[in-house]
Amino acid sequence: MDAEIELTVDGRRRRVSVDTRTTLLDALRQRLAVASPKKGCDHGQCGACTVLLDGRRVLSCLTLAVAQDGAEVTTADGLAAEGPHPVQRAFLDHDAFQCGFCTPGQVCSAVGALDEAARGWPSAVTTDVAAEPELDRAEIAERMSGNLCRCGAYARIVDAVQAAGRDGGAR
């Protein structure tokens, strides 16, 4: 069964016809030619498909497109609409990637994670869950653990997110 939906993708309003089974990831990649989010596992186990959906980081591979009619989607490409986002600049400065396949998801996830931290959200490594967490390396690593990187850039991803955090990377 097909359905017509409207999405705002990286600031552009797009109408698209989707199968009710089409995920947001496949709607973007296969029907709207927006290939910035990647399909690494298609089952919510790697984070490569991470986008910002109405401002929050989510996995587009486990999101049905038909349920997102009217939603606003931001990909890593959209983050750079007015020049590289501070998180992207930090990834470049710290060489926080190699093959680049997980990178758009890492970037979106980092933007979401910095925003969550700015709002005082705790994480699994926050010692006192009731207190305001301090965004140290362990906190960043935990918050970025939903994004796998087989090239093994983690140490440098943490460097980059930490630097972007200092520069107000949540934006």
């Binding site: 290939a35 990909t75 490409d77 590289p84 990637f97």
Partner: peptide, 20 residues
């Protein structure tokens, strides 16, 4: 710095499955 870095951080590097 990597020459392909700016494209990679935006997701504009074209991998096989997204060849236009």
């Amino acid at each position: 710095a990597r020459r392909d870095g700016p494209d990679k951080v935006r997701g504009l590097a074209t991998y096989a499955d997204e060849t236009p």
